[in-house]
Amino acid sequence: MYPANVAYHRASSVAEAVELLAENEDSKLLAGGHSLIPLMRLRLASPASLIDVGRIAEIQGISVCGDCVCVGALTTHSTLASSCDLQSACPIVPEAAALIGDPAVRNRGTIGGNLAHADPASDLPTVAVALGATIKATGPNGKRSICAGDFFQDLMTTALDDGEVMTAVCLPAIQAGQGMAYAKMLHPASRYAVVSAAAVVTVEDGRCAAASVAVGGVETAPAKASSVEAALTGNALDAGVIACASAAVADDLAGDAIDDVFASGEYRRAMAEVYVRRALTSAAERAG
């Protein structure tokens, strides 16, 4: 638990952070530090320098503008979990954020750090994919937007370039007739998701007009459950339809499943069906 020597720089703006990233070889951005610092303390990561973005005011906080909820990359999990604005505009985010780690972790960890770290067992990537969130980043060549579906590429690998700083996550606000829910099997030690599911359903005239479902914890990146979505669309969301649609998640999880001491790949796949069903059941109830 004693990290190797590391140089430390503090950025006071996004522009400065981008500059520092360019200037310092083998550098890492430091936000809440809840993924990076443990790796450094175990000497599994030994970057030459850290660029602390933790005090950049312009990328903190939550704002709701019409149909879009803009969450600054440095917003902590505890802020997400307790935000009234989010609770009404995008309630699945506080629901998931409240299940991250423990209070100490939630007080330091940030949405930007969490998404950028792209741990497949993490909660917010799955939610971001189900919501169709947009990730905003600034780099040496200016600003760009990346949709969540393209952002998570592989195990701890994202579409962010080395020189880029994530600035915000834009979430679509909940619409009339929509319900959203997150269901998670907690790992008893790490509190990460063994398996999780995020579901957003839109009900019109008693039938599912649109559905978006993502599964976390099973594959190396959040999996979009398009077979489940297809089986829901056009149907009344009763228990039978939900159960049937949930079973279709097997078709959406064709890649290699994560397999560890606690849970095998086979079990994770089986649990994906259970947690998709649970998330859909709650989401359908909430859609009313």
Binding site: P188, A189, V261
Partner: peptide, 11 residues
């Protein structure tokens, strides 16, 4: 030891 830290050893 696969359960070498509190990340894997479930108290």
């Amino acid at each position: 030891l696969l359960t070498g830290s509190m990340l894997d050893y479930a108290l």
